[in-house]
Design a binder for these strands. Structure first.
Lengths: 207, 207
DNA sequence: GTCTATAGTCGGATAGAC
DNA sequence: GTCTATCCGACTATAGAC
């Protein structure tokens, strides 16, 4: 049986996911946790501070859960497959929806922004590692800014997660299109040495 | 001088942008509009219905503002430039931030979702037109699902907008990386007919 | 159409008993 | 550490005067 602190952290994430940032309050969270509302303030001082702590707690938990699978990726193709799986799993019970709500809340609440940024950084750091392995060695390595691409990917993931909430079929199709585009880049990575050299020199001239 | 209805619509968008979805209420919106709080209910019935109306109103307005510039785009390069400009302009006083907040709110509030989806569709429809012109004719035309890509682009835009709120430098870098990637695809579009045919047949085999 | 006034609910936060 | 009780401000929504 989890202690009250942990119950509140879990309940904060669940409430963010199910009620959104506009629906979180000390009362809604405490109800979800099955504890008294005053304990939010006893343990965390304020609702904002609970949300910030929950953001880090949840992100660390979920990123750790995926770490081995990230580490096992050796090609762009495998990365795209993992992205697809991750999206499905996170949507059901995951951390990305909570992160999206915190991100929306952070636009107006400066006290939330640092924690949200830190939570996102945990994901981007993991992604950066994989992208480095998968892209930097290949022919496209010199043309992509891996840290930037990792951030862009995380941001896009959040956007797609939110989009899925209002148009699930559209989001699925959007995801498919991105996967197509990724596969297209993957093909450039997998070409023979001759064609690789041709594309690479062409890119150097053009960019 | 705008009438009260319009003042409320504009104030709703402004409040969404500055206070976020968690900060909107009949009172905050009415204060921003400089009118009485009860008028929200007289003119729109409820706060949700005002937000839904404002979503459509704002999206139509902004999309119309960009229509000519979208129509003038003839290459992927130009599209990327327009995207960059659009991002900067929308961030300052635009519709994307409000759309992002509504999207976050729609996850928990089913009454908001249809209007948000409709607002997003106005953007994706415009994008689809441009992408069709720019991509469908080129060598990559058969490998990309343009409607899907349009939706993915809109979603990514929303994600980046939210990301910018917590990490402006990171967002700028993410944007740069995507632009790089876009330019890379643009190069594939601009290759000579011989190289084009080689890449195209290679893609056909691989995908 | 616009205002005041108000009912009733829910919110953050604290004091003090146990 | 946890609870009850409470203050007080903000919220949605409506009734009714102008």
């Amino acid at each position: 049986m989890a202690d009250t602190r942990t119950k509140l952290l879990d309940a904060a994430l669940e409430t963010l996911r199910t009620q959104g940032i506009a629906g979180v309050s000390a009362r809604t969270i405490a109800t979800a946790a099955g504890v008294n509302q005053a304990l939010v303030f006893y343990h965390f001082g304020s609702v904002d501070e609970l949300l910030a702590a929950a953001c880090l707690y949840g992100s660390e938990q979920r990123v750790a859960l995926y770490r081995e699978r990230f580490a096992a990726v050796t090609s762009l193709r495998e990365l795209l497959d993992l992205g697809r799986a991750l999206h499905a799993e996170e949507r059901a019970e995951g951390n990305v929806a909570a992160l999206a709500q915190l991100l929306a809340g952070s636009q107006a609440d400066a006290k939330l922004a640092p924690a949200t940024a830190a939570g996102l950084t945990l994901w981007t750091a993991e992604l950066e590692g994989v992208l480095n392995r998968v892209l930097s060695a290949g022919p496209l390595g010199e043309f992509v800014d891996v840290p930037g691409l990792a951030k862009a990917t995380s941001a896009a993931f959040v956007g797609l997660e939110l989009y899925e909430g209002v148009d699930p079929e559209g989001a699925a199709r959007a995801f498919d299109a991105l996967e197509q585009l990724g596969a297209l880049v993957g093909v450039l990575e997998d070409m023979g040495p001759l064609a690789t050299r041709a594309v690479r020199s062409h890119l150097r001239k053009a960019l």
